[in-house]
Amino acid sequence: MNIYITYIVLGLLLPLVALLYDGIERKMTARIQGRVGPPITQSWLDFVKLLTKKVKLPEDTNMLMLFSGLVLMFAGAFIPLIMVFMRKGDLILLMYLMVGGTLGILLTGLAFRSPYSRVGVSREMQMAFAYEISFIFAIVITIMVTGCRTLEACSASSIPLIKWPLLLIPFILFLFVAPAKVGVVPVDIGEAESEIAEGPFVEIGGRYLAIAKLSKSMKMLALMQLITLLYLLPAGVTGVWYWIASFVIDGVLVFFTISVVRNAASRIKIDQAVKFYATVPLAIGIIGLVIVYLMRGWGM
């Protein structure tokens, strides 16, 4: 009984926390650019405003596609978020769910006939092919090194990165993949506002956009917490300290993988991005997999 109440409370609170992290990220970006920046509650206000707007869609919208896309997008962010914060669940399932979230974006874009959304979908798909492989490599290498397939089993008495130094390979892969997966500036080519007007989201507004934005921030928080759990946080930390440590480390990760990257680079072209993701992270992934495979033979 108790566990259900925990899940319900978490399910209500964690999306709000995710929106708060979005606000914190915007504040940090603004500070880096020398601006005052919006209040950290800005994303909540945006969410309320979007929820209370009237719905207006083009007449020839494919509603089935739109709804399935939004549901996939939401589920692909919400369930992983609960899983990683409860430290329960299967890593492979988590991987599938997070890839499913990307699929949701594609379906949403395909519901409209606007050429912008079609271009956005095509770019998003190319990007997904480029970076999701590295993401999968990262998870597989982690499983091979630590030997645990579920989140609760990955319990090291000390910091995982120190106990298993080989985890540095997937950790670096995650750092490469994080900006692309969250969709921030150097690699948010599918949603480029200034070029193709938000890409797949060009025709959605109001509460549909609210769900899309919420999913995006939940995905960001879930990814950060996944990195924290797998590589940075000792399993011995429980109770209140677990929550405090998680949220602090998540904030630091958001700063380094999202804000800094976003302000240090301008948006690159789709072929540059695909070329980058198909060479550097992929090479690291393949070489890392070979190294881990050989080392395992020697009992490491």
Binding site: Q33, P38, Y116, E198, E203, I204
Partner: peptide, 20 residues
């Protein structure tokens, strides 16, 4: 929009599409 007057501190942002 930029750091001198910074309209984002009021939550005002430029949008690319009329739907949003």
């Amino acid at each position: 929009m930029t750091s001198r007057f910074d309209m984002e501190r009021f939550g005002i942002m430029p949008m690319a599409t009329p739907r949003q």
